[in-house]
Structures are given as structure tokens and as C-alpha cells.
Design a protein around this nucleic acid. Sequence first.
DNA 1: CACGGGATCGTCT
DNA 2: GACGATCCCGTGT
Length: 213
Amino acid sequence: MTTTAQSESGQILPRAFYLDEDVVGRARQLLGKVLCTNFGKTKTSGMIVETEAYRGPDDKACHAYDYRRTARTEAIYAVGGTAYIYLCYGIHHLFNVVTGPEDVPHAILIRGIEPLEGIPEMLKRRGMQELSPRVTAGPGMLSSALGLHTSQTGSDLTQSDGEKRIWIEDRGIELRHKGIIASPRVGVQYAGECASWPWRFRLSGSKWTSKAK
DNA sequence: CACGGGATCGTCT
DNA sequence: GACGATCCCGTGT
């Protein structure tokens, strides 16, 4: 179970949060934080309810496995607190939070959020009439709802003034440890033994998480 | 609800 | 030229 996010403002997660080198731990700690966007008109946000950790150097499922470095994956090597957004299946813009110091290629895929603010705008972006888990329960869906796009890859998530467009807030939402379920990641069967690592985290009982394959 | 296939294109081989 | 860290819709039950 989780508490309900009541406050409509919170502390912007500082750089220090993102610098930690334990990407698996940070993936778990992102649950309950609030992912926010504002691209000029409306603030849209939602509480993070599902994440997956990707640990570049030794994780075959990560785009930066074995320090593979290409134009696409460059953002994963940026300092923690940077956005890594890439195009999946030619259609979906998947949003990741980069963690660790510069040149340590760790990232966390955000897979589900519970809508909080700007719900009419999110429905509009999704072409939907009513609020339901189909609006944000999945990495492609939530990126669409929040207006996230590959063109924003490399964005700084920690700016608190001026150019603030994508950021994460800590509203002090307390989660019960037992309410977090760890399980293997979705859609990474190509990754050999890494495919079974339990690096997917979700809130027990939340209807806003993606469906397991 | 389960399953199967199509969409759609950037990225890397 | 093959293939995705996915989603949607159609079909069948």
C-alpha cells in the first residue's frame, strides 16, 4: 500500500540523489517520487510506481553494456540527473533517469506513473476521454502523456530555475518497504543470464503499473 | 482475458 | 537489412 500524494509541490531531487552508484537501490527509491514536466503551458505529473534498473558495464540488457558508446547512448554517460530518452520500436519514446557520476553508464527506466496534475492535458496527448491505467501504465504510454520526446534526451533534471521542463520532486511520500515488489525486467529475453535479475520494481497493489509480459 | 500480428523508424551490424 | 527496454487492435473464448 502507498500513501496518497497530497501536496502539489515538493523538493526538486538534488544532484546528490542521482550521483549514487547503486543504480538498483536508486531504482527502488524512485518509487513514490513525482515525475513532472512543463513545456510552456501546463504542468503534468505523476507518482512513479514502476521502474527498472540498467547497469551499463556488466548488464547485457543495458544499451551501454560493456561501455558500448554510440551517438544514441551518449546521454547514459552524462552525470546523474540527466534524461536519456530513446525511440523504441520506431514509435515509443522511452524515458530514463541517468544515475551515477559522469562516465558511469547507469540508467533507470520509468515504467509507470499514477497521474496527479494536468490530467486533462495528459488525456489530450493520449487521445483519450477518461482517466484509466491505459493513460500512463507503461513506459511508452507515460512518455506520451507527459509529452516526453527523444529530442529532450540529455536534458538536465536538476535545474530549479529558468529552463525547468522535466524534473522529479520528492514530496515526502512514505512507502512501506513490503509494498515494493522486485521481479525480472520486461522484454529483455535477449540478455542471457541478466534477463533473470530482479531489477524491476513496482508498488504492490497499484493499478498504474505496466502489465508483465 | 489470452493470444497474435502490425505499426514504424532510428540504430547498429 | 534486421531488429528492438512497446502498444494497440482484432479475433476467439
